[in-house]
Structure formats: structure tokens, C-alpha cells
Design a protein around this nucleic acid. Structure first.
Lengths: 233, 233
DNA sequence: AAGTGGTCTAGACCACTCC
DNA sequence: GAGTGGTCTAGACCACTTG
């Protein structure tokens, strides 16, 4: 048993998947388990890994289907909308929350303000071709952008609003990427199942004078999205 | 049951973990399950997620322990050794394989050679402070670097060898980041458990004339490593 | 030998979707 | 109502580490 059974099943299941076209339906878990001669738990373990790898997609009450390839998002200070459109996809946003709160120590540090000062919080679900792929939460100091709530169309591009209407000039930024497991709330907003690995991206942007503009926390579905960075020596 | 039981358990377990110090041992799974009044499966699900999040670390036959914070690796064309040392950690490498093979279509395309031509493959496990954190596989065209096998100390820095001894000057590079599930072989080399989410990084480097140098596939343990990128507008 | 985490089974019920 | 994926239980055995 040095190689777990569920991996053997996964390997054989990959061959089945490759024999099917994108979007094709797989037989039900219970049927597959019987065909492969394993328990449903083992079958689900194999399927879960193929879902995490982005090769399958499960829809409760409907079935499991062969997935389309992952999207690739640039790790760059560009508009989400433009980046996606450039790849031939249809972007969309949905506002979950747009309110104010008091900065905790970590957030205050990132935004260069004192703890307890008010910050805007804009939380939006990002879509590509009608499918939710990410949850983006942006924090900006109220002191620095007092008119944001009147000026910004929350369904539009924040980046455009800041540069075009508020005269902000983006300078350097720093991004951190890691994998995490989504909370139930996040999974629900992204229409994902529990315990799916996500890509968590933390960004802090500064203007050309080095002053902090925003702190962003973006959670992307690991089964649907990857990142691309262009490196300069 | 809109919130899964294992998440409730996870939330309560986090509080327990926060009350302990780094490296402290958790009670055995069976004991925790009984204390929380859930089955061992549910307990393991909660623990597995905390492991994926990098907050716990399981060692078979020993127990489960509170983990140390994740490392942060730069997404940049710099030496792995130097990057790690700059953060106060001790780097090491272990050669798994150093041989030649014929390029398949994808690899040939990346390296700018014809399919079937020979390429060097150097596969190494990367360590930080004695712990395996990544598996790096580098491919270079034999035609371009015919003396590599004689010149390179495979336990040393490839980057240094190329720049200092072979006169290569690195230009632009492109990196792709995504999450995947490790194969049993990869998991074993990284001393990780099955079905742990990994960060997969694909890099192709070019010299200052735009000619391909190397194709690299790096698999990092998602529970121990994150990436940092500095953005320029 | 004892105790730990890792894998697997058989069976149950829930939540959701479609007919 | 029937069928799907999602969660959970109780119990078993395996693989590994330590005394």
C-alpha cells in the first residue's frame, strides 16, 4: 500500500477524463466507485484531487463534469477588467459590501495610518464568463480618499477611478501569493465546495512618492485560476 | 448544517492552537475527536485544513504539532541560496537526478529546439533549515550547454555556474504560479502527506538576446512557502 | 509492544437540482 | 420523488516512530 488506493484510482480516472470532451458529464460517484471496485470515500478522494487540479468540476444535484482549462491572471498593477478582456474572456463584478470600519494594527501599518482610523472596505466577487473566480477585498484610508463613496461606481474599475478621477499615480507595489483553504463564507460566495485550495494574494500599492494607496486581499479559486509574472533581471 | 461540522471544529481548534507555542504537540486525533464529540474523520478533516493553511504539521508515528510561519520566496531571477540566506535561513540542496532525455513537443517549444533533441534534466530537492520545501526540475538544451555535466557541481548554484562559468547573461523571464496536488512520488520526496496543496511554479528564462536558457518546474510545499513579487507600473 | 497518524470500508442522512 | 454530490459516523487495518 505504498501508493494509496485513491491515487491509483485517480490515475485511472484521468484516462477516463481524457477520453471525454470539455464539459462532458462523468458517471455518478456511486457508479464509478462500483466500477472501480472501491468505496465511495476513496472515489471521492480521487475526484476531489482532480477538482483541485482543475480537471473536473462538481455541481451539487447535477453531477461531475470535465472542466475547462484554468485562466491566467497577470501579477501586475493593471485593471482586472482589461487583463481578462485581453484574453478573450468576459469580466464582471458583483459588490458584496462597501462600508467603513476601523483599522486594526496590521491594516493601519499597511496603509500608513493610525490604528482605529476609518478605512473604506470594498468587497467584490470577480467573474469570468459568468463564473465566479475570485473575491477581492480592498481597503483604502478614508482620510486620504474622503470622497470615494460619492465618486466611485462600485461595479466599475477602482483602478480607473483612482487614476482618472482622483489623480492617483501608481508607483511600486508588492504582492504575496500563498495557498489557503477557504472559509465556508468565502466558498459560498465563490460557489465553491469546502476545503478547495485557493490562491490568496495580498497586495499593497504605493503611489510614485511611496505613499500607500490601498491594501488588497484577493482570494482566487485555485481550480480555475493561475498567475503569470514577467521577470526583469 | 449550513456550516459543516468540521469547520466548526476547525474554528475551535484554532483557538486551542493559538493557546500553544510553536512546535508544541497537539493531543492525538482520537483524543481530540472524543473531546470535541465528533468522529475521527471529522476531526481529521479539520486538522487537514489547518495543515494546508500552514498552522499545523503532522508527523506519522509522532503526533501533530504547531507549525512555524511560512517562508516567503521571491518571484525573481535570483539564486535560491542567496534569497533564503538573506532571510536568515539555512539553504541546502539534494540531487535526485541529473541525466539527459529527449525533448517532447512542449519542452522543445520552451527551449527553442526541435522535438527529440537531447536536454539536460536536473532534479533537486530544496531545503530550508533542514526541512524539504521544494522540488526543482530544470531543463537545458544539451546543444547549447554541452559541457554542463562537466562544469556544474550539481549541489551548487546553477544560476552562478551559468553566469560565472558559462558566460550567460539573464534577460527577461516569465513565471506561472498555480496550485496542484502532489503525486505520491513528489509528496515522498518532500516528506509531505498525500493530497497536500502545492504551489507549482513554471519558469522560462531568456538571455539578453531573447534566446531561451532554461525551463524550470518548481513544486513548493503550499503549507510552508509563499511567494513575493515586486511590481513596477 | 504501544501509540501515533494515514488509509479505507460500509452505511447513513442532508442539500440541492431536475423532472 | 428520484438522483446527484456533500457531510458524517463507527470501526478496521496499515505504516511509522519511540521506548
Amino acid at each position: 500500500m505504498s501508493v494509496p488506493l485513491h491515487f491509483v484510482v485517480k490515475t485511472r480516472l484521468v484516462e477516463v477524463v481524457e477520453g471525454l470532451g470539455e464539459g462532458a458529464a462523468l458517471p455518478p460517484e456511486r457508479v464509478l466507485a462500483k466500477e472501480f471496485g472501491v468505496s465511495r470515500w476513496t472515489m471521492r478522494q480521487a475526484i476531489r484531487e482532480l477538482i483541485a487540479d482543475g480537471r473536473l468540476r462538481a455541481r451539487q444535484g447535477q453531477g461531475t463534469f470535465v472542466a475547462t482549462p484554468k485562466l491566467v491572471q497577470p501579477l501586475a498593477l493593471v485593471s482586472y477588467t482589461e487583463a481578462l478582456r485581453a484574453q478573450g474572456h468576459t469580466p464582471a463584478r458583483e459588490v458584496v459590501d462597501f462600508d467603513e470600519l476601523a483599522a486594526d494594527a496590521v491594516l493601519a501599518e499597511k496603509l500608513g495610518i493610525a490604528e482605529g482610523e476609518p478605512v473604506h472596505r470594498l468587497e467584490r466577487v470577480l467573474f469570468a464568463d459568468g463564473q465566479p473566480i475570485g473575491l477581492e477585498t480592498t481597503y483604502l484610508a478614508v482620510e486620504r480618499f474622503p470622497t470615494l463613496k460619492e465618486v466611485l461606481d462600485p461595479t466599475g474599475s477602482l483602478y480607473r477611478c483612482l487614476t482618472d478621477q482622483l489623480g492617483v499615480r501608481f508607483g511600486e507595489g508588492e504582492e504575496l501569493v500563498e495557498t489557503v483553504i477557504a472559509t465556508p463564507r468565502e466558498a459560498e460566495l465563490l460557489k465553491a465546495t469546502q476545503s478547495l485550495p485557493m490562491l490568496l494574494l495580498h497586495r499593497t500599492s504605493r503611489d510614485t512618492t511611496g505613499r500607500p494607496i490601498e491594501a488588497v486581499r484577493s482570494l482566487y479559486r485555485g481550480d480555475r485560476v493561475g498567475f503569470r509574472a514577467t521577470l526583469r533581471p
